[in-house]
Design a protein around this nucleic acid. Sequence first.
DNA 1: TAAATGCGTAAGTGTTTGCTTACAAATATA
DNA 2: TATATTTGTAAGCAAACACTTACGCATTTA
Lengths: 111, 111
Amino acid sequence: MRRDVFQAIADPTRREIINLLAEKPLHLNAIADNFEISRPAISQQIKILIACGLITVKKEGRERYCELKFEKLNEVSKWVEQYRSFWTNKLDTLDNYLSEKTEVKPKTNKK
Amino acid sequence: MRRDVFQAIADPTRREIINLLAEKPLHLNAIADNFEISRPAISQQIKILIACGLITVKKEGRERYCELKFEKLNEVSKWVEQYRSFWTNKLDTLDNYLSEKTEVKPKTNKK
DNA sequence: TAAATGCGTAAGTGTTTGCTTACAAATATA
DNA sequence: TATATTTGTAAGCAAACACTTACGCATTTA
């Protein structure tokens, strides 16, 4: 059974879970509340995200808090960004890219 | 049948095909030469990459040249980069990221 | 202590995936 | 024209996937 980040983010439900956890850690039922599918279904998706290292779990009483490991997404980022020069050079969207990035990472020109 | 970029890049073979085509366009047999699996298997993978817009095909005689549409990867980039600030701020791997990027895109500080 | 809550997992199911071999169509070459 | 080359696709198959219901185990609450 393959368990890498690329396979993990291929599923829309799992990407949505990631999106939820990006805001703040949530326990399993709180996550499941956002979906139509059953609680065990979410539990299984969480299991996959844990297996590939995208989230970790903290036990608190009977609740399990899921926390996103953002840095695991770096694997995807590194893979996709190696091709960036090609499409930015070709389409001249470099400016858009830089201005977009500035929003999230203002320290582009570090001293 | 879902055909989005995330699902397309989930498969290692398809990522390898993308990697090959990043260097230069290739016709189908030339691609297949790089893999152990059969030619029809590659043909089917190519079909998926076409369906989601990651490659286009140019007919030349009896050969079909596959060309990578780099910019389609922007969908993945946009999704993953929205979370970058979280992991860079947290782990202070910004420097690594920037030096890595410099390798592939030397014109970061365009005049 | 009994009931409720939060969760994991087993078992079952229909669908999708990724491959194979076999075949056919289009184009190039002898 | 006969043959070789490049490719697409159909059919079949085993494995993986994404869900469901059912159940059991901790933990908390009444």
